[in-house]
Nucleic acid binder design. Sequence first.
RNA 1: GCCGAUGUGGCGAAAUUGGUAGACGCACCAGACUCAAAAUCUGGCGUGGUUCACCCCACGUGCCGGUUCGACUCCGGCCAUCGGCACCA
Length: 821
Amino acid sequence: MLEKEYFAQKIEKKWLDIWEEKKPYKTDDDSKKPKYYALSMFPYPSGKLHMGHVRNYTLTDVVARFKRAQGYNVLHPMGWDSFGLPAENAAIQHGANPKTWTLDNINYMKKQLKMLGLSVDWDREVTTCLPDYYKWTQWLFLQLYKKGLAYKKTAPVNWCENCATVLANEQVIDGKCWRCNSEVTKKNLSQWFLKITQYSDELLKDLDLLKGWGENVKTMQANWIGKSTGAILKFKVKELDNVEIPVYTTRADTVYGVTYLVVAPEYKDIELLTTDENKKAVEEYRNNAKKLSEIERLSTERVKTGVPLGTHIINPFTGRICPVWVADYALVDYGTGAVMAVPYHDERDFEFAKKYKLPMTQVIDGEGFKEGSCYIEKGHLVNSDKFSGMDATKARDAITQYAKDNGFGEFKTQYRLRDWLISRQRYWGAPIPIVYCPNCGEVAVEDKDLPVLLPEDVDFTQKGVSPIETSKTFRETICPKCGAKALRDTDTMDTFMCSSWYYMRYSDAKNDKECFNKDLVNKWLPVDQYIGGIEHAILHLLYSRFFTKALRDCGLLDFDEPFNNLLTQGMVLKDGSKMSKSKGNTVDPDEIYQNYGADTARLFILSDSPPARDFDWTDAGVEGCYKFVNRVYRLFEKFQNKINLNYNLEICNLNKKDEDFTRSVHIAIKKITYDIEHEFQFNTVISAYRELTNSIYEYVKDENAINYKVLSFALLTLLKLISPVLVFLSEEIYSSFNTTESIHNTPWPKFDEKLAKTSSITLIVQVNGKIKDKIEAEADLSNDELEKIAKESIKVKEAIMDKTIVKVIVVPNKLVNIVVK
RNA sequence: GCCGAUGUGGCGAAAUUGGUAGACGCACCAGACUCAAAAUCUGGCGUGGUUCACCCCACGUGCCGGUUCGACUCCGGCCAUCGGCACCA
């Protein structure tokens, strides 16, 4: 029996206890059903759940439950992205232990997640900061190392003074640290990198395979990879035998217009290229460049500066002698670090040449060309010897080919993507499993010695050193190769390493012999639906795609892309701006659970906007959803004794009212199923819930005219349709019919195509495209009949009275348009 | 500058293929129930005009133009907002 009134807390508590005990959402690896992998981006255990989490996990949960009802074997796991700076900062600021701090947070948030009613298989929970997980992160690092995909090199790297660590390129946003927003500087350090650039082309090309990803994310990744095709051209230095300067250019067609060359201040041969007279000025210029921050240097508004080195190059095409300059508009880490300057056809070179009164030669002509101003269009060549008159695009290839044939050039594809810097000078991460031996050099830790455990005897407060270096027990070890005294690497790995493979681990989460079983990972992956925030469009999603390809090449798995479909949810806003503690506009999920229950929270977070768009949280909106939940409850409470569970219903022998009502139920099944399957449009799903509920209320208005078989069918269908969203309420109501089975194990309702439409239609009658009349008519009439009905309309007759009919257009079941003159 | 997304009532939004623009909800207004309030139920709700009123007429999906019997939807050209990339040669 249902209680008289709806008490969310009581019902939800009851079912949470039952689910905890019975584990109804445990995934069976051996099921014969087709698999479906529904995945949410796992949370960082920051302390408490926020509404963004609620939105993310509700979305994935509803998808998981819907697919389960459709007969899929669903994997819906959850875990914790639990290494990272906030834990360590808590340790520094409040003297907490990062491990305790993290595990306490996980404990609390896990409880909150469970209260949301997620159908997660908690037996597959992964926690990246625990040794049973990071052992395998370390092992995977070593696989990449052995494959030559992880290497150590000294390079100018991004350094955040505030976080006291280096950062990957992807973690520098507009010259600032992604985490603390302070300015990033360059430091020359020896660091570990992963060779993501080896996959540049595949990462770009395979974006085309990702039909289930939004254009926005794919474009961001394509921009980030930044492919450009061009050529390397080599210029001999006049003053120095055996020295050449190679440049990268996408406009080889303009090579006859080169009037000078520019090298970056950090260019490797710059000292060689500087003559004694220019030494002082060049040194001064380079020192100034060093002082500039990334932000200043990258500003496009800055006036271009530079100084000549004193040496010259010989243009192999023209024989022309051109000076070499140093200027910071050339970037050391793109192309070759040197640029051939063609002032007439490049805006930057033009500006620079004008300022320093360097010569210009026009070599391209075409539409819109104006004497004395920069022309960057691709027209045809002039002043270019035998290439004159040629189309610029063709000339680009012809000139490169000529350079190649004569040994001073080649075709070259250039990417903007850089290798992924993964070392961090911080404590709370997976230690890099490498040992430095005085005899053998860099040596990998052996598999049997994994994991390399994080030391506990560390001091977080010492400035200028990584906390791990303060451990007395960690550093010293013996070389796995020769047994000599050796030192461990004291850096840890970027947390994005941990999150690049967690979704694979879920396929075999408890395996202590392997990172995952190959058959299981191949069975469950790729992920069928991945849901999470847009902020990972480049970082996590690009790294994970790279990891998948790299692990494939290590022989660990057999697929090319990890995530077939990606839904990037919008932000949760309140009063028009993102919820944040500093703005004081946050809403605490615990409070919502307490006041309205998790079902109402789930309903509301899905109701007002489609998932990809931002969602505006309003108190009135929650209130409205709570009213709906109560409205549904009252309906079942009132008719609970009249419901017949066997609702297989024949349409024949029904009167008009019952038939139309039955049709509206079929229409609802059809619409809801379609809207979930297409783009997860839960906002319209929920409006269909409301429409069906409204029509049930309409149907039961006249209590003497209720056919209880028909009503049972409608109510039970409604109950099943709302069950993926209102998980507790539907279970409570269903169990009140003395069923032993959970509603969440019952199949999704089917609709009858013949019944999923109305028996009568509103025929729209237009004259010359303007609506003149609306006529109720039987459905499925022939075109002739519809035309006849339309012409009988008095309003139509008036409108066409003194005119001739040119033609009549009939759209079956919809409209008739009479065209007159 | 290049690339991508978005633009519809007071608000969130809807409109499978070109075929009733504004479903569903929030807010608001009016009414029923009540001694009263809450809850609940019923009705109204794009703009302007006309009418005592139901009716009716015109306009209306960022702007301008086009295709079509018919355009939120297709095409061309703009504008605005948000996001990504960018002295990348």
